[in-house]
Amino acid sequence: MPARDHLLRLDGVSVELDNGHRDIPLVRDATLDVRKGEIVCLVGESGSGKSVTARTVMGLTQLDRRMKVGGTALFDDVDLFSLDAERMRRMRGRDLAMVFQEPLSSLDPVFTVESQLREGLRRRERLSPKAETARLSEALQEVGIHDCERVLRSYPHALSGGMCQRVMIAMALLARPRLLLADEPTTALDVTIQAQILELIDRLRHEEDMSVLLVTHDMGVAAEVADRVVVMYAGRVVEDADPQKVFAAPAHPYTGGLLACIPPMVGARPVVLPAIGGSVPDPSSLPGGCAFHPRCVNALPRCTTEDPPLEPEAGGTVACWNPLTREAAPAPELVHNGGSA
């Protein structure tokens, strides 16, 4: 593994929601690194805690007093979770930036793009109005918007979803952040626009030497841009490895199942798609032991009682007692799981 420096290091991060009766675990013991200039894809389904993790790094989860955050998030050796609100706010404007799934609702409908961009820029640096305008045009050019003047004058509703997302990214990049958190940035967009945005993120990361933590539910998106893939399930990191390894030889049965149930784009079509049975558990009622065991085809009796730790396995790390990369366990030991929802 190349000895690149760590920019962000999450260690044992947990997020719990106090719903008035008890604490609901949304993220459990999440551990992951983002190195400089690297795109890490955080992959998972709904309720996996992937978005909450990203929002917690950004300090947004903590704004809700019902949320309890534990663990550490070292950003350049500074623990983000220990910063006071004012210093965190300054970090957000400068070192950290975030792009959300719904570009249209992330922009304020009553201000023009220009005034919103200007506001973002002013939080970072003071320039003359002329220099400001030049910077804004430059920022829009950077994200592939060529008719800058029209876009600057527009209100968000007058722009398409793809255009709004470009504006959001331009706004995030105005601060020249060192870490871009992108929460499903292309999910609401069409595939041809998605391709443009992914291309853009990939290019900017090289040009700006920026790190990206990209949250997505789409394994295909992860395969396109990721330098490393982190798979989450039910609030936990279950696998963390290079894409070459994750997609060719997944270690966690969940990762394997996720990949298997995506219909192929070439070759023979399976008569029946190999689906993962059951459904994603609700965070308020997680199964005991490994949270995936009721849906797992590889489950051992041990899986029903003990939650496996995240440990090195075949070139990555995996949290599983019986990973796919290991010799198959003798059949009688397996717990049989049905495949219905």
Binding site: D64, G93, D108
Partner: peptide
Amino acid sequence: MAAATAVAEATVLRHRTWRS
């Protein structure tokens, strides 16, 4: 960015006032 953060903060605030 600022706008998006503000939206998120507003959502959180709304929940808080509702609770109180």
